[in-house]
């Protein structure tokens, strides 16, 4: 009986330990920045959901397009209504893998290389990004950025505002994950 109980407890602990390989955040930060000589446009989203599985190196991120906040309210309306069509495509998502997880876990490297598929406006394209990845027992923090070509995602920018919106926008992520039970 004691042996059985001991085994059970040991197994339980290993299971709990195993499930702590996953880290999640629901208040991640992602912003994008478009620079043109005419104007700079910046939008920020503080309600990003992101999860990392350290046992596999898999990562997933989702966000609501309507949660992007712009400096000017009209920009936000045009972004949702005219460009990314948030009623039709409410979410953007990313599914990918940390390529050099072992190096980071071993403390050899602090910069993660992540490849995966980004879905925006209903279009999925492969992307790669790099960013600082810091792993501790109770936190997995990622800090990185990458460029997105607007035309890749079939987002149509009318010619009248073409000079105001960059062809490539810079996306910045700050994701601070905590253990997921």
């Amino acid at each position: 009986m004691y042996r059985a109980a001991l085994i059970c407890i040991c197994l339980l602990f290993s299971i709990i330990g195993f499930s702590q390989e996953r880290y999640i955040t629901k208040q991640g930060y992602i912003s994008f920045y478009s620079h043109t000589p005419v104007e700079d446009i910046k939008a920020e989203n503080n309600q990003v959901l992101s999860i990392v599985d350290l046992s596999t190196g898999n990562v997933a991120v989702t966000l609501l397009m309507k949660s992007f906040e712009f400096e000017k309210a009209l920009m936000q309306e045009h972004f949702n209504e005219n460009y990314v069509e948030s009623d039709k495509y409410p979410k953007a998502s990313f599914e990918g893998e940390i390529q050099n997880l072992k190096e980071i876990l071993d403390g050899e490297n602090g910069v993660a290389a992540i490849t995966g598929d980004l879905t925006v406006h209903g279009i999925t394209k492969p992307i790669t990004m790099e960013g600082k990845l810091k792993i501790t027992d109770d936190a997995v923090n990622f800090d990185g950025s990458f460029m997105v070509t607007v035309a890749d995602y079939e987002i149509n920018i009318p010619s009248v505002v073409a000079r105001n919106i960059a062809k490539e926008v810079e996306v910045t992520c700050k994701l601070e994950h905590t253990p997921y039970r």
Partner: peptide
């Protein structure tokens, strides 16, 4: 104990095979 263990084991294996995106979906407020 065995039932307990089986339950936990099943539970974790199930959620392991679950897609990360599905977890995010269920966690979306």
């Amino acid at each position: 104990s065995c039932i307990f263990f089986t339950f936990f084991f099943l539970n974790t294996t199930l959620s392991n095979s679950q897609d990360l995106l599905d977890i995010l979906e269920s966690e979306t407020p």
